[in-house]
Design a protein around this nucleic acid. Structure first.
Lengths: 192, 192
DNA sequence: ACCTGAACACCGTTCAAGT
DNA sequence: ACCTGAACACCGTTCAAGT
């Protein structure tokens, strides 16, 4: 038999600490030595679990995409109406800013894409897919007769617009900027 | 008398090389030693012109905001119609992607805001202001009777949406993603 | 299976020294 | 005014060595 919720082992603690660090400072600023300090091991131990920094990037983005997929599945099953679903969706991105002005992990890794190994880039793309496919599902329920092509474009636009709102609000260090931008998106009908 | 266009001195060459590097790899990945190699001096010389990496960030973002202001002033004076102005505006962000999948300097620095000195953060915010104020001017010409409050919100939304389109397209390494998202923005009436 | 110390070539930064 | 070499504490990475 397997334990369902074992207490976090070193590998999981590294992933948790790394995620927080990347969402705040970015992937390039991530330090194996500081990570080791956070977890209580030596940096060579971090290399035992993740041979290179690139391997850590792959695991980080992959886990993030998986969790997003699980969360969104659950949200879609919650039988909320369209506007409530979209409000819950944008609230996830708002929550990152509330938590130490953090960013979406894949948003900040997209900015650093040039320094990621190809496999990590693929996980970042998968996170985008998870989001846009979910948005297509939500939009299809509201516009059953619309062309999938148009809904896919709309879904990509919604995702990009929210990522941009988060990026700009973070740059200005003001969560009210995020709220104002999201309201303007709603006002123009981007979400409906 | 002063020369109008002196050949680029070391300081200017450093700024040019640094801008290209940051737009591709981000501020945290920037290396004084590699910068020095690009320019043909030693890294200690880079520190002569920019004592710390933070000072370089300030100069970089400040120069970028200044150039954006000058470019947008010129564009506003070009007597183009609204749709053409907006097309020219989005084309600037597209051009960065075309050039080695680069990003807006202030977009990528916004992602790394936690590692910037406060003065550099202020320059990033100033770049945002330059853009949104220009967009308010453009929108005011089209909607003379609209409330400035609403136009400011719309301007911020347009800027954030375009930054997000650039970020997501870059993450996916596909400029067609940018074009598709911008088209969806137009279709929903975000720019008009 | 998991961790460590020591070494390597890198990094930003400082500073005394050169022209 | 501008540049440099050398030193410092950092970094990712490797590896032989420990338990």
């Amino acid at each position: 038999m397997t334990m369902e919720n074992p207490s976090p082992n070193t590998r999981e603690m590294i992933l948790m600490a790394a995620r927080a660090a990347v969402q705040t400072h970015g992937y390039n600023a991530l330090s194996f030595r500081e990570l080791a300090k956070d977890v209580g091991v030596k940096s060579a131990s971090v290399h035992y679990h993740f041979p290179t920094k690139g391997d850590l990037a792959v695991a980080l983005a992959g886990q993030y995409a998986d969790e997003a997929a699980a969360f969104l599945d659950q949200l879609a099953a919650s039988a909320r109406d369209h506007d409530q679903l979209m409000a819950d969706y944008t609230a996830v991105f708002r929550a990152a800013l509330e938590q130490d002005n953090r960013m979406c992990l894949c948003g900040i890794m997209a900015a650093e894409t040039a320094d990621l190994p190809p496999e990590a880039r693929r996980e970042v793309e998968r996170f985008t897919s998870v989001n846009t496919r979910w948005l297509v599902k939500v939009l299809t329920k509201r516009h059953p007769k619309a062309k999938q092509e148009a809904l896919r474009a709309r879904a990509a636009a919604i995702f990009a617009a929210i990522e941009g709102a988060q990026l700009v609000a973070r740059g200005n260090g003001d969560i009210k900027v995020f709220d104002q931008i999201i309201s303007a998106y709603e006002a123009v009908g981007l979400f409906s």
